[in-house]
Simulated scan of single mutants.
Amino acid sequence: MKIVADLHIHTVASGHAYSTILENVTAAAEKGLEMIAITDHGPDMPGGPHAYHFGNLKAVPAELFGVRILKGVEANVIDLEGNLDLPVDRLSSLEIVLAGLHTVCSPNGSVAENTQMMVNAMKNPWVDAIVHPGNPEFLVDAETIVKAAVEYDVALEINNSSLKVSRVGSRPYCENIAALAKQYGAKIILGTDSHFALAIGDFSQAIEVLEKYKISPDLVINTSVENVLHHLNRRSNRKSSVN
């Protein structure tokens, strides 16, 4: 399976990543990628950027070295209601919004509470994908999550870093989500969750999961730039405020 876009990439602005935008784009071009998304953590992450950072991403070119650059965020889910750490005016100005549960930002409750928190985040009209939903630190009812992803037209990430260097123990949970995504027809994205430029474009572990469960490329949105843009453009029918 050929993946042309890496939609989960961090820069030094995240506070615990170690490459610049320019270094990331250069690495992506060398890997033959057609698109990347710059998705630094939201401001509630220790060391993360101020909200103003996301408003000024317009200073970054739309394309460099033949690589399309999406300006986005990996927003932190901050409460059981699924609220994020950026306001609507910031979220609506970005080209891609990822949302994730993180130990230092999100309350960790029961399986039912974690599941509802993640589903509530999907209801946010600006959220395009839920990242690392197979994180064992936040156990969820995977079937409920996948069904909600279909209902709210939100993609679920198979996170290569979770399977390789972070969030130890994620594989069985990621595999379960992949199998359920195939069963219910949920959209999938692959992300490297790169915190250093050399990791960009390495989807090896995530692709292994897709191949194990014979996931069709049709379900994976970053198999083409057109698929990515089609998914993101569904926002045109969304309300400008969170329900």
Rank of each mutant, 00 (worst) to 15 (best):
V60R: 03
R238Y: 12
G134L: 10
Q116C: 03
A62I: 05
L57G: 04
R238E: 14
I78W: 08
P46F: 03
A121E: 03
H16C: 10
T223D: 02
N124T: 05
E208N: 15
T39C: 11
N159I: 00
S194R: 12
H50V: 10
D153I: 06
V88W: 09
M35F: 02
H8T: 00
E34Y: 04
P133V: 11
P217R: 04
V209P: 09
G185T: 10
E226M: 00
M122S: 00
P172Q: 08
V209R: 06
E34L: 15
H102Q: 11
G109V: 12
I3W: 05
G15F: 06
A112H: 09
V228K: 01
A178H: 02
I158P: 03
G191M: 11
R68F: 07
V242A: 14
V209L: 12
A199T: 12
V146K: 11
T192C: 13
T103D: 14
I158L: 15
L22V: 14
S194F: 12
K31W: 02
M122N: 00
A37Q: 01
V127E: 00
I145K: 10
K58Q: 13
K2E: 14
A129M: 05
L163V: 06
G169N: 07
S236P: 01
Y173C: 02
S92I: 04
A62V: 10
L33D: 03
L64A: 15
D141V: 02
A75I: 01
I145D: 10
T103I: 14
P136Q: 09
Y184S: 03
N159E: 08
Y152P: 02
V168Q: 12
K182V: 12
S194M: 12
V4Q: 09
A181T: 13
L229W: 00
P107C: 02
D6C: 01
S106A: 11
A28L: 09
S194Y: 11
H53C: 02
H195D: 07
N176I: 07
G66Y: 00
A99G: 06
V4F: 13
W126A: 15
E208F: 05
H53G: 02
Y173K: 05
K147T: 01
H41K: 11
G82Q: 04
S241D: 10
K187T: 10
D44C: 13
V77G: 08
G169C: 05
V111Q: 09
D153P: 04
V242S: 14
V150S: 01
P43T: 10
H53I: 05
R235S: 05
P133S: 04
D193N: 15
N160I: 12
K239W: 13
M45G: 02
A28Q: 08
D202A: 03
L80M: 13
G72N: 04
T192Y: 11
N124V: 07
R171A: 13
G109I: 09
L7C: 10
A5G: 11
A142C: 11
I69W: 10
P125L: 06
L70H: 04
I177K: 09
K164S: 15
